[in-house]
């Protein structure tokens, strides 16, 4: 319990150890701590940014989806309209074609009727001539009675 030079020795040791700590121990440790702190802060900030970006992307995806749906329904609507148009067109086409075929058939029928009438007519002339020959018992000169015959033909 005597106060002696130990005191001075301890003071010197104290200064030496403090100097050693100041020079070789404190700076690397506190630098490592600060660096890590910064790294962690950066990481957290990056994570937050990533989350924010993801939110934005989600929103954008929803928008794109919505737009796509709208477009699809529009396209479907247009397609339905077009289908209706095509059906209508086909209907009119068919109607026209039918009419045309009908007309052609009518014309053919008329032609046939006409031709049959002509044939009938010439046959009637022959029959009439034959009948007349039989009645008169003589041959009728076709050339002499040509005008008469023609008159008859015209009458039929």
């Amino acid at each position: 319990m005597n106060i002696n030079a130990t005191l001075i020795g301890q003071s010197i040791a104290f200064f030496l150890f403090v100097w050693f700590c100041l020079k070789f121990i404190w700076p690397p440790l506190i630098n490592a701590l600060n660096e890590r702190k910064k790294a962690i802060a950066d990481g957290l900030a990056a994570a937050e940014r990533g989350q924010h970006e993801q939110e934005l992307a989600q929103k954008r995806a929803a928008e794109v989806l919505h737009e796509a749906k709208q477009q699809a329904s529009e396209i479907i609507g247009r397609a339905e309209k077009r289908a209706n148009e095509i059906v209508e067109e086909a209907k009119t086409d068919a109607k026209q074609e039918g009419g045309r075929i009908l007309t052609a058939a009518q014309a053919e029928i008329d032609q046939e009727v006409h031709r049959a009438r002509e044939a009938l007519r010439s046959q009637v002339v022959g029959i009439a001539l034959a009948g007349a020959e039989k009645v008169l018992e003589r041959e009728i000169d076709a050339s002499t009675h040509d005008d008469l015959l023609n008159k008859l033909v015209a009458e039929i």
Partner: peptide
């Protein structure tokens, strides 16, 4: 040992 504690306290004091 009071010398040790005094030594440190005096160093702080200076």
């Amino acid at each position: 040992d009071p010398n040790i504690t005094f030594g440190m306290a005096l160093a702080v004091f200076w």
